[in-house]
Design a protein around this nucleic acid. Sequence first.
DNA 1: AACACTCCCAACCGCGCATGT
DNA 2: TACATGCGCGGTTGGGAGTGT
Length: 304
Amino acid sequence: MGSSAFCVKDRVKKGAWTPEEDKILVDYIKDNGVATWRSLPKLAGLRRCGKSCRLRWTNYLRPDIKRGPFSSEEENTIIQMHSLIGNRWASIASHLPGRTDNEIKNYWNSHLKKRFANKGPDQQKNRSGVLVKAIDSKPETPSTHHMMQWESARVEAEARLSMDPLLLNPLVAVKIESDYFLRLWNSNVGESFRGANVGDGVICGSTGSQSSSSIKVDDSGSGINVQQGKWSKRHGFTDTVEKQGYVNRAICKTGSDSSKSCEIEDSRNNIFLKLIDFQSSPDNVESSQETIDDVSIYLKDECD
DNA sequence: AACACTCCCAACCGCGCATGT
DNA sequence: TACATGCGCGGTTGGGAGTGT
């Protein structure tokens, strides 16, 4: 379907790109941008298929691409990310500005793969000597499995956001920065969650007493609503924004004692994260000291 | 110098997801 | 709901560059 029809035109040139072709492509995109890749070669006067043009642009001609050898920091990032999420090169690339997924994939296959091939089936050490465990491996416990799934979901959400071209707009970047899920994850709350000792099993049946005002964000279609904004003493969240993300459903509440609770559901990975009774400054989340009293991880099927 | 072999990376291929009709 | 289209992603390949004999 899609791609098979995308690049099957006869008489299109294949193989290495010439400098002349590069110039045509760059000049055209500079002047006109990219409406659809499919129509671009014809409009630009290139005998290439749209797919080839897109690849050439995204992997080689884009002005923000960083050339040269990988730094030790970049290498370390690749190793750690790969140990966590496996061959998801696009997600890994989102953490390395200027590097393409293709470049990272090649670097892994040519430089790093062999180095870790003899370190056991699922264990790798980064340059700091920290032992990390591959997510591809069979989890030893349900909780570790879910921790990995959740981290994987987080990385994917970050990747999606970072790949968003709107990010180039600083105003939009502020919105994305305040994406509640990611901010929550990157806050002390998320830190607590990541470091939380959830034992060997899945914790179910956690309780929390919320009342007063609440805002429910529900996604029943393909679009996803993610809360952003600041806590308000009286109204829970203020400001909402619709954007593409990974969280499928979030229910956030402000208790009568100004305590907060937040439930985040990730249906794709079948994870239910519940943060109960954490406090934060109602006026400025960014600078707040958030604490967490209870963290629950649900397996939906088991706990509903 | 010539050949064989290995390595690296740009480019291609096919699958699958998101979106539109 | 079903189908078509556009495109992103990960796996694979082919050829040039580098190295060894």
